[in-house]
Design a protein around this nucleic acid. Structure first.
Lengths: 223, 223
DNA sequence: TTTTGTCTAATTGTAATACAAATAAAACAA
DNA sequence: TTGTTTTATTTGTATTACAATTAGACAAAA
């Protein structure tokens, strides 16, 4: 009945300046290292006080898009993507739907890792992975330390720094999402099995193995 | 000769306040809806001016972690993860390494989609996908519109909103990364072939099909 | 010539104050 | 119960003043 009704939002000045700056950055095709007008100039041009300008700029500094130094002024910088994501990725403040999505995202990424792994894996790396798998404490079914070590190494082998750092952020979310679900029963394919496949098996063997490894998670997904 | 020397980092007050607040949020176990102390109280407690407090808070507002209303004060809110990522994900300001990583990330996700797809796909959805594939203009090998429509639909079928929105953000990055590389030669498996597999084939058939579809990209990855 | 030191002007950073704007809550009226 | 007015509180904006940093100019020294 109340569908389509939006709360009337009145943007504050600093939010409007934020939008203006976003546009400005794009239209003027700013690149890393380019310097911005001074706060004073921005203030007079946009006809707002310097405090408003500074609050808007603070936001871009939070994203790592803008850096400032005294005397030099402000410059466009390249943001740390994963670092910024890490500032938001806390189970307590994300809604359940997003947490579930992220849970699934991790499954998707783990599955999809295979092809990249087979492009980048080396004998040395696989041996190191084997060592990790062998040293696992056989305690619980889902021991977070073991997971971090083993899967972390997998990501490392792909040589993709962003992916590796991102999965580190995803782990607490994953663990949290799991704690919300029923008891976990491990899959038939364990870490050591995956190592064996990496050593002797094909790309497709590995995909199938990883699917089996993650199978308990998939069975608990809702259709 | 200058190895191991780091620039002395000169944190501003507002950056220090930012860190303090981060800690504070975690330690006090803030949840969505919890309200924060007033700016004035924060200022007197942290012994800085209100402007500094406001600049720090602006940053959290940028991430969507904090919202404020007059008289009511400030509350913790749940951030829009993908929206925030979208504010950073612009080819012009990300470094090349990250762009390459994101390029690979998209490949990984596309590959990993299979299992989730087979959990969630319906006959109706596959028919809709088929329509999309049939309506493609046979123009260029990599027509961005065709890609968006087809792969976007795939993500939609997974029912994962975060993933769907995320891949939309990834597309420009993907296109940009591709423009940096040599001429693109399409893979042997086309969209229509993938549809056929989805209709009749197994999970593994689809994985193999998707790999072939993306094969030209993989061959251009560096070892 | 090259380095080192000093000064100057420009720019961001911080503080403090005043007031505007919104609004929840209370008090009051119908 | 419903509507109206008032009040007090909190965030939002503007302004001013000054502190802190530093690039660049220039001078002095080696």
């Amino acid at each position: 009945m109340l569908d389509g009704l939006q709360p009337i939002k009145n943007l504050s000045m600093s939010e409007m300046v934020e939008v203006s700056l976003q546009q400005y950055f794009r239209e003027k095709d700013f690149k890393v290292g380019d310097s911005l007008p001074t706060e004073k100039d921005l203030a007079t041009t946009l006809q707002v006080s310097r405090s408003v300008i500074r609050e808007a700029l603070s936001k871009f500094k939070m994203l790592g898009i803008v850096e400032s130094r005294k005397k030099t002024g402000m410059v466009i910088s390249n943001p740390d993507l994963v670092g910024t994501i890490g500032k938001i990725l806390h189970p307590k403040i994300l809604d359940d739907a997003t947490l579930q999505d992220l849970f699934e995202l991790r499954l998707v990424i783990e599955s999809g890792l295979a092809d990249l792994l087979y492009v980048r894996k080396t004998e040395k790396a696989v041996t190191e992975l084997e060592t990790i798998a062998r040293n696992e404490k056989p305690g619980k079914a889902f021991a977070i330390d073991n997971e971090i070590a083993f899967h972390g190494k997998l990501y490392e082998i792909t040589g993709n720094q962003t992916l590796k750092r991102f999965q580190l952020l995803l782990l607490p979310v994953f663990a949290y999402a799991m704690s919300m679900k029923k008891k976990f029963k491990p899959g038939s394919v364990r870490h050591m099995d995956l190592v064996e496949i990496l050593k002797k098996g094909t790309r497709n063997d590995f995909k199938e193995g990883m699917f089996e490894h993650l199978h308990p998670h998939y069975t608990r997904l809702e259709k």
